[in-house]
């Protein structure tokens, strides 16, 4: 099972997106666990996470996010604006699978 952590500013907007991403994976018979949190909470969940998705709303904190992720050998994936805005679960799934 793959654990995915999606972070945005307050963990609010991303909570809508996690459902869409989860659906996209379920459609492909792939089992994942995905949760959304505020970006400041990465440190609390990074042990658990295999993949970290970053909302464009926290682009300003990207350097720090990179730094934390690097310690754990994870390369965070920044979700492109349009995909985040359209809450396009399928496209984001592809993004995850291809990386």
């Amino acid at each position: 099972m793959t654990n995915i952590l999606l972070v945005c500013q307050g963990g609010m907007s991303s909570s809508f997106l996690v459902k869409k991403i989860h659906e996209a994976f379920t459609k492909n018979q792939e089992e994942i666990q995905i949760i959304s949190k505020a970006s400041m909470e990465i440190v609390d969940y990074i042990d658990w996470a295999d993949i970290i998705l970053v909302s464009p709303s926290v682009l300003y904190a990207m350097d720090e996010i990179m730094e934390v992720c690097q310690e754990y050998g994870i390369i965070p994936i920044l979700i492109p604006l349009e995909l985040y805005g359209r809450m396009d679960g399928d496209a984001i799934r592809k993004l995850i699978v291809n990386s």
Partner: peptide, 8 residues
């Protein structure tokens, strides 16, 4: 956020 980033 969907409107800010989606419309955009």
């Amino acid at each position: 956020e969907p409107l800010i980033f989606g419309l955009p």
